[in-house]
């Protein structure tokens, strides 16, 4: 393995009124699960469309597996699941899937074999009913999502790009998706997915990139990103947190940069360069009834909020889990 599955160098994309992506550079190593994180409107979908050469960047270059993405042959090795899903409603499932496979250069015969395999695997073809022969609009929403997912993977792509794959999935399909992502990684494939759900990203991704307002905020391995922010986050449980003395310490901006106040539980971010021990000492001096004081690894969610800031997140878009 080794090498880069996707290498983005300084791409920008400007629409009439606004800049969707600004000077973005990313490196996605081959064989990893890569999360593209950001609030809605951050430029995730634009970035993904540019990777797929569906829209052209105003500046910058993108290579996939070492080849420029304007090379059509290289795009045949990419599988794509768009955020807004859709299939030809009046067509038979099997015919749609064969069509999608043919667009990736798979012959009809080989496509048919794989379609059967996948339909059985995702329980769309059972002893009683073969949904492959049904029209797309006869399928339930969940089944349509499965069919679309088959369409993404039918040509056994080396790079799989999923735009908000978890949105609209029921828990069972969401689990099936996670399983498939893990399996793809085991088989050496590269998976890139965008999400605003940090829990999924934290569990699934090897590396992440957080973008907001079209710009990269941070990127790196999940472990690396968390380590970089470790030692600065403190979880405190305190019974008399409403005491003015305790409150004063929590609000001391020379010590505490940011506090997530949950009444008797606090997640604090220390001002860089300050020692959490100092915080503990001061809390004890203020006679705080401490039940718990722990240096914690921040969640991606926490880091995301810290980095993007409240202004970068549209209301309701910071979805946790």
């Amino acid at each position: 393995m080794g090498g880069l599955a996707v290498d983005i160098r300084g791409i920008s994309k400007r629409y009439d009124q606004h800049v969707a992506v600004r000077e973005l550079s990313l490196e996605v190593p081959t064989g990893t699960v890569y999360g593209l994180l950001g609030p809605n409107g951050a430029g995730k979908t634009s970035t993904i469309r540019m990777i797929l050469n569906v829209i052209l960047p105003d500046t910058g270059q993108i290579t996939i597996l070492g080849r420029p993405n304007t090379d059509e042959a290289i795009l045949d090795r990419v599988g794509y699941l768009p955020e807004e899903r859709g299939l030809y409603k009046k067509m038979k499932v099997r015919d749609v899937l064969r069509f999608l496979a043919e667009l990736k250069g798979i012959g009809a015969k080989e496509a048919n074999r794989r379609i059967d395999e996948w339909l059985e695997r995702l329980a769309l073809k059972t002893a009683e009913k073969d949904w492959g022969n049904a029209k797309v609009d006869e399928l339930s929403r969940g089944m349509q999502q499965k069919a679309q997912f088959i369409g993404t993977l039918l040509h056994d792509p080396d790079v799989v790009i999923l735009d908000e794959p978890f949105s609209g999935l029921d828990p069972i399909n969401a689990q099936a998706l996670k399983d498939t992502v893990v399996e793809l990684k085991r088989r050496g494939k590269t998976v890139i997915f965008s999400t605003h759900l940090m829990d999924n990203a934290e569990r699934l991704c090897d590396s992440v990139c957080i973008i907001a307002r079209g710009e990269k905020v941070l990127d790196g391995t999940v472990a690396g990103v968390k380590a970089e922010h470790a030692g600065r986050f403190v979880a405190v449980a305190c019974d008399n947190a409403n005491e003015p003395a305790v409150q004063a310490i929590m609000r001391d901006r020379t010590l505490v940069r940011n506090v997530d106040d949950q009444n008797t539980f606090f997640e604090l971010e220390m001002v860089p360069g300050t020692d959490p021990q100092l915080l503990l000492t001061r809390l004890v001096e203020a006679r705080a009834a401490i039940r718990r004081f722990e240096l914690v690894q921040p969640s991606l969610h926490r880091i995301f909020l810290e980095k993007v800031g409240a202004t970068g997140v549209e209301p309701g878009m910071s979805g946790h889990g």
Binding site: E72, L75, Y80, P82, G86, L103
Partner: peptide
């Protein structure tokens, strides 16, 4: 409107 176009144009010009 069914967004099929997006999948298709990711495979064919």
């Amino acid at each position: 409107t069914t967004r099929v176009a997006e999948v298709v144009v990711a495979s064919v010009r």
